[in-house]
């Protein structure tokens, strides 16, 4: 497919599950990078070419909202699209994430079909 993705979640289990769901959804990436929080995600984005970021909201050190704010201030990465994968899907929180540049959100728990429906059109 020619895309690189960055998975940001403090749970290694969840990073594996998201990676597996992408594969099951038929969304195979050239490279799947991983980061355990927003700070580490910024480090990856500084070094690697990433086409899309899938990020958790509730993380240590730098949470999803702070990550979006910091990313928006860095010209070299501000246009990389971010989808939020989170248990927290209240309207206010998702609204804030979208105002900070998130292009969509997927609620945990999710199925590979849900991942395909949300990300598939975006990656075509």
């Amino acid at each position: 497919m020619g895309h690189n993705v960055l998975l940001v979640d403090d749970s290694s289990t969840m990073r594996k599950i998201v990676g597996r769901s992408l594969h099951q959804a038929g969304l195979d990436f050239d490279n799947i990078y991983e980061a355990a929080d927003g700070l580490l995600a910024l480090e990856v984005l500084e070094k690697e070419s990433v086409d899309i970021v899938l990020s958790d909201m509730n993380m240590p050190n730098m949470d999803g909202i702070s990550f979006l704010k910091e990313k928006a201030n860095r010209p070299n990465m501000k246009d990389i699209p971010v989808f939020m994968f989170s248990t927290e899907t209240g309207d206010d929180i998702i609204g804030e994430a979208k105002a900070l540049g998130a292009v969509g959100a997927i609620k945990k728990p999710f199925t590979a079909h849900m991942v395909s429906e949300v990300l598939g059109p975006f990656l075509k």
Binding site: T87, E88, T89, G90, D92, I93, I94, K108, P109
Partner: peptide
């Protein structure tokens, strides 16, 4: 626990804030 907590939060608070 995280997924259960997030969903219980949504049950108890519609806007999540």
């Amino acid at each position: 626990a995280n997924m259960l907590g997030g969903n219980v939060k949504t049950i108890l608070s519609q806007n999540g804030r």
